[in-house]
Amino acid sequence: MQLSHEHVRKVAALARLKVTDAEVESLLGDLTAILDYVGVLNDVDTTGVQPMVHAVELHDVLRQDTVAASLPRPEALDNAPRSDGEYFLVPTIIEG
């Protein structure tokens, strides 16, 4: 797998990660080496093999829809970088 600087920047944008030029350079080298290594999986014939997403077979669990206490608002807001006591505060999303 041949990765380019462009490619690394695109993945960083998808991951919402700000990366410096130096980081792009080192990520390019590391990811190229790792993707090269995982290429070994191409040696395995997986025709007809179902993907295994989980180690235990999961099934739906039903329960009564009962009212229960939830986290009080002050506690939910306690760890927020910015809040006004009622809401989480973020920069303006829609101008106007």
Binding site: V8, V11, A12, A15, R16, L17, K18, V19, E23, S26, L27, D30, L31, I34, V90, P91, T92, I93
Partner: peptide
Amino acid sequence: LGEMYEASRGEGFGDEVKRRIML
């Protein structure tokens, strides 16, 4: 807002975490 996400994550995560998120 977009820059806030990117800068916060760029500053908050260490190299190995970034590498694995990217992969």
